[in-house]
Lab assay of single mutants.
Amino acid sequence: MTEYKLVVVGAGGVGKSALTIQLIQNHFVDEYDPTIEDSYRKQVVIDGETCLLDILDTAGQEEYSAMRDQYMRTGEGFLCVFAINNTKSFEDIHHYREQIKRVKDSEDVPMVLVGNKCDLPSRTVDTKQAQDLARSYGIPFIETSAKTRQGVDDAFYTLVREIRKHKEKMSKDGKKKKKKSKTKCVIM
């Protein structure tokens, strides 16, 4: 069974824990209790493949930012979460993405942009803004509501699919490099 290491990042209060708990335990946590770091595991079937999701729910508070490099190193894919009623959390996505790329030393890291709290009427981040940002990053965008469960499975499952595509691409690139290195030079 394939294991996928997913990391949920975003500013404090955007609903990272609520999304994760909704996926794992099928219930909505409405009281806000700032996370330092929590880890969850769940076995699911995605596109006919049974897999184990190892999900790291991270601290959004700035005082825990020193811990970010460590979990970013171990993560295979990242859910970059903002709240649709919090423009600052949307603007912060850029910083999370840049930090992930720096730590992973790669421009090509599996990510999904997630606009959470889409059940709320007080939207300050337009869907088109988020779609445009995701398009500019070359990553999928999904709106979710941890409260109603809308888009929750889709967000995590899409990230797994992005990781699969990335692994497939990397193995193809690896095979191309191996083929090239088999060419021999004969000096007579």
Rank of each mutant, 00 (worst) to 15 (best):
Q43K: 14
A18V: 04
V44H: 09
Y32E: 02
S17C: 02
L56K: 09
L52Y: 07
C51L: 08
Q25V: 09
D33A: 04
N26Q: 11
L23F: 11
D47I: 01
I36M: 12
Y32G: 06
E3F: 04
I55D: 01
A11F: 11
T58I: 08
Y40A: 04
L19Y: 14
V8P: 00
G12R: 05
T2V: 07
Y64R: 10
T50L: 09
T50E: 11
K5Y: 01
S17E: 00
E49V: 10
V44K: 07
H27Q: 14
E31Q: 12
P34Y: 12
A59N: 12
E49I: 05
E62Y: 05
T20N: 10
K42Y: 05
H27C: 13
D47C: 04
V7F: 02
Y64H: 14
Q25M: 15
E37G: 03
G15Q: 00
V14I: 10
T58N: 08
V44L: 12
Q22K: 13
V45L: 10
Y32N: 06
K42E: 05
V14L: 14
Q22G: 14
D57K: 00
Q43C: 08
E3L: 05
E37A: 06
V45W: 06
Y4L: 14
S39W: 12
E49D: 11
G15I: 00
A11N: 06
I24R: 06
T20S: 11
I55C: 14
T35F: 15
Q22N: 14
E49N: 09
I21E: 03
E49M: 06
Y64F: 09
G13T: 07
E62V: 06
Y40L: 09
T50Q: 11
D38F: 02
K16L: 15
Y40G: 02
V8N: 01
G48A: 07
Y64A: 13
G48P: 07
A11P: 10
Q43S: 11
H27W: 14
Y32Q: 04
D38E: 07
Y4Q: 09
V8W: 01
L56A: 15
T58V: 13
A59G: 04
Q61N: 06
V7R: 02
G15D: 00
D54I: 01
D30C: 10
T50D: 09
P34V: 15
L6F: 10
T20R: 01
G13Y: 03
T58G: 10
D38S: 01
G48R: 08
L6K: 01
L19I: 10
Y4A: 12
P34Q: 14
Q25Y: 03
D54K: 04
A59L: 05
L56E: 14
F28P: 03
K5W: 01
E37V: 07
V29N: 06
I21G: 13
Q61G: 07
R41K: 04
Y4M: 14
V7Y: 04
I24L: 13
T58A: 12
V29A: 12
E3W: 04
V45F: 06
T50F: 05
V14S: 13
G15F: 01
Y64P: 13
T2R: 13
L6P: 04
Q25G: 10
V8F: 03
G60H: 15
L52C: 12
K16F: 00
G12P: 10
Q43A: 10
E3K: 10
K5H: 03
Y4F: 11
E37M: 14
S39C: 13
Y40N: 02
V7S: 06
A11Y: 07
I46G: 09
A18I: 05
E49H: 09
C51D: 08
L53C: 07
L53A: 05
Y32V: 06
G48V: 05
E31H: 06
I55E: 02
G60I: 14
E31W: 07
D33V: 03
R41F: 01
D38G: 02
V14Q: 13
V14R: 06
V45C: 13
G12D: 12
